[in-house]
Design a protein around this nucleic acid. Structure first.
Lengths: 209, 209
DNA sequence: AAATTTCTGTACCGATCGGTTGCAGAGGCG
DNA sequence: CGCCTCTGCAACCGATCGGTACAGAAATTT
C-alpha cells in the first residue's frame, strides 16, 4: 500500500551508491554536502529527509559498502581451508581495491583514518567495523584449528590480524595509485608468510593455484 | 648578523613540532588553523609570516617528521643484511607507531589518505613521499642481491613493496588503537613471509633475535 | 474536485573555514 | 635618542561548511 502524499522522485538506494562513491573518493570530511547532493542528483532538504544527516548518510553508505562491495570477503570465509580463506581474501581484496570502475582503495580506510575533533566518532566507527571484520576472520581461523586444518599451536587472532594488516596496507597503496599487478605480487609474498606461519613444516595442503 | 627589528619571540622549530603533532592526530584537513595556532602558542599572522600558509606548514611538518620521527628507518637501512634491514625496520616501525608520548599511527598515513577536492595535492604529496621511501628500500634490497645476500631470483621491488604495505597496515591498525604487542606479533609473521620469499630454501643467515 | 500529505527547490541560517589587513608597541641599530 | 623593522594581537575578509524554513508542486485519498 503506497503512502499518501507525493512519492519520492529518486531511487534512495541508487542515490546512496553515488554518495558512497563520493565518500570513498574524498573521505567523510572531504566530501561536502554540495558535492554529495550534486552526485546524488538531489537537493539538501531531500537528503536530510531521506537519510537524516551527513553522518547518518555516511554510516548507511558504509553499510551498503560492506554489503555490496565487500561481498568477496564473505565468499572467502566460506572456503574449506584456512589457506584458501586467506588466499581468496587477499587476492579478491587486491582486485576490489583496483577496479577501474570504482575509486581506488577502500572506503573503510579512505573514509577517515584521521578526522577533525568534532567528527572523531566517524573514524572510531570505521576502526571498530574494521576490527569487527578482523574478529570474524579470527573466528574462522579458530574453527580451522578445531578442524585440524591449522596446527594447534598457531594463534588464530594473530594470523587474522596479519591478513587484515596486509589488506589495509594494500588499501593505502592502492589509493596512492599503485597498479593491481604490483599489489598482487605483494599479496603472494604475504601468502608465503601465511604459509610459513600456519604450516611451518612446509606441509601446506594442496590447493588451487 | 642579526636582522634589524624585533626578533621572533617563539622557537620556530619547537612550534613546528607542535604543529606536526596536531596534523598527526587530525590529518591535514582535520587540523584547523585555530587548533594549530593554539597548540603552537602563536597567532595566525605569526604562523603566516613564519611558514607561509597551512599547506606549506604541513609540508614542513612532514619534512621534520621524516627527519626526526623516522630516523629509525635510516638506521634500519644501514644494517648489514637484507633480513636485518627488514626486521629492524618492521620492529622499530611498530614501536614508533605506538609510542605513548606521540599520537598513534603515522603522520604520512594519518595526514591525508583522502582529501577534499581542493587539497588533493596534499594527499598526492604524501603518497609520493611514501613511495619514495619504498624505492629507497628497494634499492637497498637490490644491493643485497648484488652482494649475494639475497638470491638472484628475488624481486627487490616486490619485497620492498611488501614491507611497506605491512608498515602502512600497521599504521592504520595503530591509529585504531591496537596495542603494541599485537602489532609485534603481526610483524613477526610478516618477517616469516619475508624469509620464505627471500630465502626459500630455509637457509636464512643467522642473525640477532 | 477538494482536501490532505509529502516531496522538491530556493533561499537562507549561524558557525567556521583559511587567509589578511591595520595598528600599537617591542626591540635591534645608528 | 630616533629610526625602522618586525612582532603580536584583534578584528575582519569572502567563501564554504552542515543544516533549515518556507512556499509551491505533485500525487493519493475522500
Amino acid at each position: 500500500m503506497p503512502q499518501p502524499g507525493r512519492p519520492r522522485s529518486f531511487d534512495a538506494e541508487q542515490a546512496l551508491d553515488r554518495a558512497m562513491e563520493v565518500f570513498w573518493r574524498h573521505g567523510y570530511e572531504g566530501a561536502s554536502l554540495t558535492e554529495l547532493t550534486a552526485a546524488m542528483g538531489i537537493n539538501k532538504p531531500s537528503l536530510y529527509a531521506a537519510y537524516g544527516n551527513k553522518e547518518n548518510l555516511f554510516r548507511m553508505a558504509v553499510g551498503r559498502y560492506a554489503q555490496v562491495e565487500m561481498a568477496y570477503a564473505r565468499d572467502a570465509l566460506d572456503r574449506p581451508t584456512a589457506y584458501e580463506v586467506a588466499a581468496t581474501l587477499l587476492r579478491a581484496n587486491v582486485v576490489a581495491l583496483t577496479r577501474d570502475d570504482r575509486p581506488a582503495g577502500c572506503l573503510s580506510v579512505q573514509g577517515g583514518t584521521a578526522c577533525g575533533t568534532d567528527s572523531a566518532a566517524v573514524s572510531e566507527f570505521l576502526a571498530a567495523s574494521r576490527l569487527a571484520g578482523e574478529r570474524t576472520l579470527a573466528e574462522r581461523f579458530a574453527r580451522a584449528v578445531e578442524e585440524h586444518d591449522l596446527p594447534g599451536d598457531v594463534d588464530p587472532t594473530a594470523l587474522a590480524r596479519f591478513v587484515m594488516v596486509v589488506t589495509e596496507g594494500h588499501a593505502v597503496h592502492a589509493a596512492a595509485g599503485v597498479p593491481r599487478a604490483d599489489l598482487e605480487r605483494s599479496a603472494e609474498i604475504a601468502l608465503r608468510a601465511f604459509t610459513a606461519t600456519a604450516y611451518p613444516d612446509g606441509l601446506r595442503p594442496a590447493v588451487s593455484s
